[in-house]
Design a protein around this nucleic acid. Sequence first.
DNA 1: ATAGAGTTGCTCGC
DNA 2: GCGAGCAACTCTAT
Length: 640
Amino acid sequence: MPARVIYWFRTDLRLHDSPALKAALDLDPEALYPVWTWDPHYVYHAKVGPNRWQFLLDCQSAVSEGLSQINPESRLIVLRESPLTILPKLFKAWRISHLVFEKDTDSYARKRDDEILAKAGEAGVECIVKYGRTLWDSDEIVGINNGPTMTTMQLQKAGQKLGPPPRPIPTPSSIPPPGDLSLKDVAQDQPGPEYFSADQNQSNRTAEDSTYHSGLRGPEGDFSVPTMEELRMSATTPHRGGEKIALEILDRIVRDKEYTATFSKPDTAPTAFEPASTCLLSPHMHFGSISCRKFYWDVLDVVNEWEKSGKKATEPPCSLTGQLFFRDMYFAAQAGVGTYFGQTLHNPKVRYIPWHLPSKHQPNPDDILKSLSIKGTYHVDSKEAEEWFIKWREGRTGFPWIDAIMVQLKTEGWIHHLARHAVACFLTRGGCYIDWERGAEVFEEWLLDHEISCNAGNWQWLSCTAFFSQYMRIYSPIAFPQKTDKEGKYVRHYIPQLKDFPEKYIYEPWKCPIADQRAAGCIIGKDYPKPMFDWKERKEACIRGMKAAFEAGYHGSDVEVVKGNARDVLQEKFKDNIESFADATSNPGASERKGKDDFESRPTTSKSSKMPAKRGSGQVTLDTMFARKKAKPEDECNDI
DNA sequence: ATAGAGTTGCTCGC
DNA sequence: GCGAGCAACTCTAT
């Protein structure tokens, strides 16, 4: 019996180097249905901003065109229904013998795919699943490494045992047509109310999403790729998706042999834009519009040639191939840790820190609102932390370097890796002391290249909760960008209010004399906000907090954390240490500290930060904070 | 056991 | 521009 195959596209929107697609074609099928299922989980429950939606639709359209170029009868068949319900119906309607797809090790995907495999089994449909998203099969890496890979060395060693990643498979020269596309007796199952009521992307829509309203086949009845209009979204990014664009970028990179062979990630400038200092292939890697193995081998061929001519090439982890190893490391870390990889709670690899604004993953819902307020320590009121978080998200912190990055992230969906470091460090251990999961959620929504494994892993890295632990190394929002952009071109581009600001004060505009502010047409506190806190003061407080949490040594799967006691235990256990530490360090810098007028509204008085903390006295609670706010309204007017 | 390395810190002094 | 010092964590190789 000739095979009749559904090729299910998910993380692999390309035709070159697709091991799963090759496996489907190797069946020599009489019919091949290239299918995309419109998963309501992704439409409503995953955070996906307009820019990433556009990129996905670009990639789908490109695959569809690519298929049609190989065989005019072929194209991407988009079915507007959950795979869990539509695929079993298709098995019958199209008399399917095989279901083929690329392996996905994300936790939601694993669960979904297990269900699909079971349903296919019931229907007598044979399934073929091939890894193709990473250099090596992440599950095999985990097996060889005896657990999740937490260093690139572990990844590379395990990879060595598996042998070099396979060379890329060429784009197929022929593809069978799909068979009969009629859907007799197949009715559309629309998403239930539980999806609409929990729409994570509502704020990005101008009206209710309508992608399901026109039935299984879409408005033209032709299974076409949905549009941004149907999603009720509009994108702002200049970066566009699709296999052709991705291959052109890679080709341009490897044609520049010196750039390719001597690439050193830490030396690339996060302040560079138009063009950026790195390749911008990460969104394509996310959607599969470029194969990471093609990237790997195209680069390695250039490197080998470069070295053959006696010239020195860079090596992992800094080189381009090293970047791919990090990606595989995070994938294998997630594959090994499992469902809880993206959170602290229940995650044995992630260190517990009593962050402000704990994420939604807490043992008791009340814990999310819980705040500690010991004066002179890293603790602040949760209301204040909430304000910091909102300002960070919206790019209104008053630190131009941080704000410019957040503006670029929101509008363009891509920022340089080191820019991600800067804002992630600032939000967590290097400023706000806010839960990394809160920041990761913002990245999840706005990044074109959002990959749960890499995003969560990098947030763990930057917050010093896993992968990396040197919490003394904190990025300065002033000194760091000056290394590559003394003039502040980047800041001037993304924060136009500051475009004529004096170079001397571009990263700390609150220090600029008022006459110069007027001359630059930007009054700090009016046209651009004052800094939301004294960064050096916050940095020191964060280090004290990290030190205490590291001494406690809790991790996400420890019983105290799972039971929800860790925060209280830690507070009790380290209250004395923290305060004595504060005693010893709070005075030296006091004389250099600027007056309170230089900063945005501060619920705690400036006096309190200069004075050594006295045990058990003068705690700032919600009530006293609001009392102060009421009593001193002028403090609230700093940014007017 | 101990030393050294680890993708990318900052400040200061030369 | 470079190196030392800051004060410090974790894993790996020996």
